[in-house]
């Protein structure tokens, strides 16, 4: 008896230690990653200063030439690092993605929540969620082989003819690789996220509220527009912000269709562009050949910037989604 209980105690102690380590690991990982990225970015922050946010030029310098010293740090001669192209590219492609994804997701979510039932709803929901599981490189490949030629030969020329009054629709279409193509692949990747979250929010709107509208002779659209949507507004904005965070951080698919422009800002909707995530992935290899290591530090600073942006977006999104949920609950109780 005594022996068994001591074994049990040992197991319990092991359990507590294991659970403690497991539970603390996310925090430790997050802190560790942040620490490492910040440490890696420090020399670049000192070297570039605010210039990093404003300059258009990203030049790792002549790594086969000499070194230069500035602000107590060393870089390849001629090096200067500016991330404005990538900040603009990241924000612009993500916003374009949302412009496409938000209406599609909202309508899909309405259909899933209210217009389908039982097996059909389950199948459609699963399909939407499967879309989220497609590896981004596959979507990128589709973008590269199907989407960009189509933009180049069909959609682009059409848009630039029809929408010529809007400055950003005018101008040369080029290869089809650029902002619009990036926006499209990002839309494909954000739609499942926004749709699934919105569907869940819509399902939380009490049937009683919707029937109030239906019973008053509202059309389906009017019910969604005037009753359901106002109920889920905060949560929906949160869902969109989640999608935005996902779009900003996406790497591979964008890398394959963005045209990866450096040193210049997009001129129109079709211009080649680069995003922060894609650029970091792309440039790390050659950055490693920089003997001064400044190229790696600069990429770390870019990664840090991206991390700050996505973490802030995600925090805001989560806050809004939970606000939306709480509001649901509160009004539900009041109606009693």
């Amino acid at each position: 008896m005594q022996k068994a209980s001591s074994v049990a105690k040992t197991i319990d102690r092991a359990f507590h230690v294991a659970a403690g380590i497991a539970a603390s690991s996310p925090v430790v990982f997050l802190a560790g990653i942040v620490t490492i990225v910040v440490i890696q970015a420090m020399p670049s922050i000192r070297f570039n200063g605010w210039h990093f946010l404003t300059s258009l030029t990203w030049n790792i310098g002549n790594v086969y030439g000499g070194l230069e010293h500035e602000h107590g740090v060393t870089a390849a001669s001629g090096a200067s690092f500016g991330s404005r192209v990538f900040i603009v590219g990241t924000l612009a492609s993500s916003v374009i993605a949302l412009l496409m994804a938000v209406p599609v997701s909202l309508l899909t979510a309405v259909v899933l929540a209210y217009r389908t039932r039982g097996a059909l709803r389950a199948i459609l929901s699963t399909l939407v969620e499967l879309l989220a599981g497609i590896p981004s490189v596959v979507i990128g490949l589709w973008g590269m082989t199907v989407l960009t030629p189509w933009i180049s030969t069909q959609l682009g020329p059409l848009l630039s003819r029809v929408g010529g009054v809007i400055p950003y629709l005018r101008g040369p279409v080029g290869t089809g690789m650029g902002l619009l193509a990036s926006g499209c692949v990002l839309a494909v990747m954000t739609i499942p996220i926004i749709t699934a979250t919105t569907r869940d929010l819509l399902l939380q709107v009490p049937t009683l509220y919707r029937e109030g509208g239906i019973g008053l002779g509202m059309t389906d659209w009017e019910v969604v527009r005037h009753i359901c949507f106002p109920c889920i507004r905060e949560g929906f904005i949160g869902a969109v912000a989640l999608g935005f965070g996902r779009a900003m951080g996406e790497t591979m698919a964008v890398l394959m269709v963005s045209g990866n422009a450096v040193n210049l800002l997009p001129q129109n909707l079709y211009s080649p562009t680069s995003t922060m995530a894609a650029f970091v992935a792309d440039q790390l290899d050659s950055a490693l050949t920089d003997a001064s290591k400044m190229a790696v530090h600069a990429l770390s600073e870019l990664a840090l910037l991206l991390m700050v942006l996505t973490v802030a977006t995600n925090l805001a999104a989560r806050r809004l989604v939970s606000l939306g949920r709480r509001r649901q609950w509160r009004t539900g109780v009041d109606a009693r």
Binding site: L56, V63, Y64, G174, G178, N260, V262, N263, L264, S271
Partner: peptide, 17 residues
């Protein structure tokens, strides 16, 4: 100059793959 990645002159029609 030259390198495994260089500071390409800004050309609007250019794309990178």
């Amino acid at each position: 100059g030259y390198g495994t990645s260089v500071n390409w002159p800004p050309v609007h029609s250019e794309v990178a793959a």
